[in-house]
Amino acid sequence: MNKGQKRDWVKIILDNFIWLILTVLFTYFAVNVPNFTSKTNLLNILLHASVLGVLTIGQAIVLMTGNFDLSAEGMVSLSTILAMWLMIEPGSVVGTAQGSGLMLNPYLVIFIILILGTLSGYIIGVLITRLNMNGFIVTLAAQLVLRGVAMIVSNGQIMTGSPKAFNWLGGAKIYGIPVSVIVTLLLFVGVNYMLNQSKFGRELRAVGANPDAAQASGFNPKRTITLAYTIGGFLAAFAGWMLLGRLETAVSSLGSGMTLETVAASVIGGVSLKGGIGSVGGAFAGVLLLSLIDNALNLMSVDSFWVESVRGFIILLALLIEAQKFRYKPKVVHEKEPAVASDCK
């Protein structure tokens, strides 16, 4: 086997390493954990993966442009709280949720929160591209503001009792399979196809790899990045809709910690933090991996304290592999301005 062939072979394995890990873990759990492969449990795994999955699609898209989105979890919190607030009555018992009493039509409310998410993503995108503000900090600040507003609106209360029409996405089933699972799978397939086949997908990757070269080629990096954040905002609100439907409960702490998970899932799935590389399909594998582990740990009698460490180790492992990948591929050319860097990478 000459060097070229060996490289190809290794490359294929590394590219799809995540699926390999997934298969190995799945088999291990199937053998050692009782009831792991029952239909209900497999559906549970996919159910866990659905909300995280939707958020990860958004994060992956933003990552591919070479930026970060820390604000998505804030939008999950705000969209769920706002939706509840618009739909339920003020509670009569002190210390329970005070809805607005507006009792808006659930469909209208869905529309409202999706618009809210889109708008928020758009504003963030504009702040980052037009005003040249650092993406990391802008989305961090946005998260504080979004969650803060959620806390104000809910006054720290737990709000329960969302109407059935609203819960459909998160709670209903078609032929025994949860709607959220179907929708998430469709989204992944659809977005993956779009990114691989469409001009937008090429634009996304080009901008992530080298914004100036992309500009020279006729793309508009500012518009692309703004669009990426807008999509991210929309998906975050969508995920909120899904989550609320499943829990039928909203509290401002919903979504905490999901940012880390979405970034981790994307990275495990091969999305590069430098931008320009990766696919949504890989991110999906990352999401499945994290959900698999969570589910297995719930079924085994393991201290939930170990989950954190296990997750951390897996991420490090995935990163190591990502770093190794670059030895076998030509490096993507990244530009950095000499005197000043306006983005953190």
Partner: peptide, 16 residues
């Protein structure tokens, strides 16, 4: 945590 109440119930009651 509400989400953990949900996933613990789904997983355990779903398999036993």
């Amino acid at each position: 945590d509400a989400a953990k109440f949900s996933s613990a119930t789904l997983d355990v009651a779903g398999s036993t």
